[in-house]
């Protein structure tokens, strides 16, 4: 088997995890410094934002400042009053509803991705969402990137589902929170998968908190089960990177982003010698 610069590439898989997904930028930085390329990028939910940014080849500094502008708490404007209206029946809540006005999210995504399509990426990009009706995972690899990312981050009940390609789609984390299977199917040989467990609350003071908590329990259990299966069933090399956060990270905590990226770097550096060894052995 030949070794060479061409082969010094890994498939990057970035799982769901809201703001924590920014840790992928730390991983990416570490790979760049080690002169390891990215052969494909796969993302689910919050991870899709970073997979797309990486596949489009944005500068890391630019990606970092875009991230800080993206996850701000004003995204959640109107949430509490909409929740009250939905619970009391004042507002009708259907399968197409969400508790926040998603126009702002869409505009922010448009700022980041503009008119870019999957054809504009430097390496293949795959984004995972979930079909709202069948519950199955959907892999996006063509069309406007903004559609795929918007569908993939449609956190149930918070962001309304998104229609693309004639289907109604929700959060990729509902079916495939760490889509290693997509990288395997697309021929990834050395797969670096960064995943996150969702935060677990100790006290819950609102319906929304309980709902979020149930989602976290399910998604964490799906994450563990799918990871156990893919790890066992497939023979691609999967290097799991699970950054540890000593501080609590909640969604829309954008001032935590530098810390999150730092932890991503730290976790990636720990695995770097092993990644290097795999790539030189071929």
């Amino acid at each position: 088997m030949t070794t060479g610069i061409d082969q010094k590439r890994v498939a990057m898989v970035i799982g769901s995890g809201g703001v924590k997904c920014a840790a992928a930028l730390g991983l990416w930085k570490t790979l760049q410094q080690a002169e390891i390329g990215v052969s494909m990028a796969v993302g689910s939910s919050g991870g899709s934002l970073y997979a797309a940014v990486i596949a489009l080849g944005y500068d890391i500094q630019v990606a970092q400042s875009m991230t800080i502008d993206f996850w701000t708490s004003d995204l959640m404007e109107g949430y509490t009053s909409n929740l009250r209206a939905a619970l009391s029946g004042e507002e009708r809540f259907t399968e197409f509803s969400g508790l926040i006005n998603d126009q702002q999210v869409y505009e922010r995504l448009a700022n980041v991705f503009g008119q870019h399509t999957f054809a504009d990426t430097h390496c293949p990009l795959y984004i995972v969402s979930t079909d709202l009706y069948s519950g199955e995972s959907v892999v996006h690899s063509a069309g406007p990137i903004i559609d795929a990312v918007r569908a993939s981050i449609a956190i149930p009940m918070i962001f309304p589902p998104w229609q693309a390609g004639g289907r109604w789609l929700v959060d990729g984390a509902v079916s495939d929170p760490l889509p290693i299977d997509v990288a395997i199917k697309e021929g990834g040989e050395t797969i670096v998968a960064m995943g996150f467990e969702l935060p677990i609350r100790s006290r819950m003071h609102s319906y929304a908190a309980v709902t979020g908590h149930f989602n976290s329990i399910y998604m964490n259990n799906i994450l563990k089960a799918t990871f156990a299966f893919h790890n066992l069933a497939h023979h691609a090399e999967v290097i799991a990177i699970l950054p540890e956060f000593e501080r609590d990270i909640w969604s829309f905590d954008s001032n935590m982003i530098p810390y999150v990226i730092e932890e991503g770097t730290r976790a990636a550096e720990k695995e770097l010698p092993y990644i290097r060894r795999l790539l030189t052995i071929g």
Binding site: T94, M157, I222, A225
Partner: peptide, 29 residues
């Protein structure tokens, strides 16, 4: 889906099904 609790319930059903499949695939293998 006509209410927020039904929506929550719908999402839970999807997740239960995905969890069922993933766990069974693993244990079977």
């Amino acid at each position: 889906v006509s209410s927020i609790s039904r929506f929550a319930f719908h999402v839970n059903s999807i997740m239960t099904n995905n969890l069922l499949k993933a766990n069974f695939a693993f244990h079977n293998l």
